[in-house]
Amino acid sequence: MPLRTARTAPYLFLAPFVLSFLIFGAYPIIRSVMLSFYITSGPEAQHFVGLDNYLHLLQDPDFWTAVRNTATFALGSVLLQLPLSLGLALLLNRADIRGRNVFRFIFFSPNLMGLVFSALLFMLILAPRFGLLNAALHALFGLPSTTRWLSTPSLVMPALIMVALWLYTGFNMVYFLAALQAVDGELYEAATIDGAGRWAQFWHVTLPGIRPVLIFVVVLSTIGSFQLFELAFLLLGNSSGPDQAGLTIVMYLYQNGFLGGDLGYAAAIGWTLALMVLLLALVQLRITGTGKEAR
């Protein structure tokens, strides 16, 4: 074909995607920014308030409760999950494990079940007096079986972290397993000869070797934890739990936007969350020195 039209051909081929992205991706994002400057109760009922939505939410104790809860969940999740998934991956990485694939599947399968099913399952497990967990704790340790996991404020977050642990440990484990298998075996041999014991080998060979994946998993887990909604929503039955102990930022958004009807305020919450998560991710990447590597 003629040269000048050959030059335009790529743009024409890109056009459908770019167009649909502009319409369904970029436009809603821009629109939601604009929406966050209004109090709304319908498309024809919008009242411009400028930055007042943001100011109000920064002063709203409920918002900060949500931030606190979400941060607790993220911290607990990351701090507990990562060592656990890394540990499992290390165990499965041993060459002498038989049926490694079977174990890998077993640990990964909670992820395949879907949140809703898992939440329903855990509602039964966590039920007071008759639930599986209480019965087990009572039988093994003699703990009272009337512990109301999802109705006691101080136990809600631990319960949520527990469920998240069950759901996502296998997922992260798979990432780590892949990373571990990419570490050169010869390095371990050299380290053995150099006199490094198991822990020294882990610290000097394994960890630096999986560092990129480790950072990736940490950042991803943090971002994901901050978006906690479905699990809390399902387990606490459409509410934010006793004493708002299960109130997460997205749940706060949901309550104000979709139950209360003010989508403008909800947009403000959403953008605040996005900025928070962005900041957090940047901080994490900065601390771990990623992006500055000469590689």
Binding site: S239, S240, P242, D243, Q255, N256, L259
Partner: peptide, 20 residues
């Protein structure tokens, strides 16, 4: 009221606090 969900959430909180 449009603020019923919010009020109910606050009420839930208050009940738990009073209980403690």
């Amino acid at each position: 009221s449009g603020f019923l969900p919010s009020a109910q959430a606050k009420l839930n909180e208050a009940i738990v606090s009073c209980y403690s």
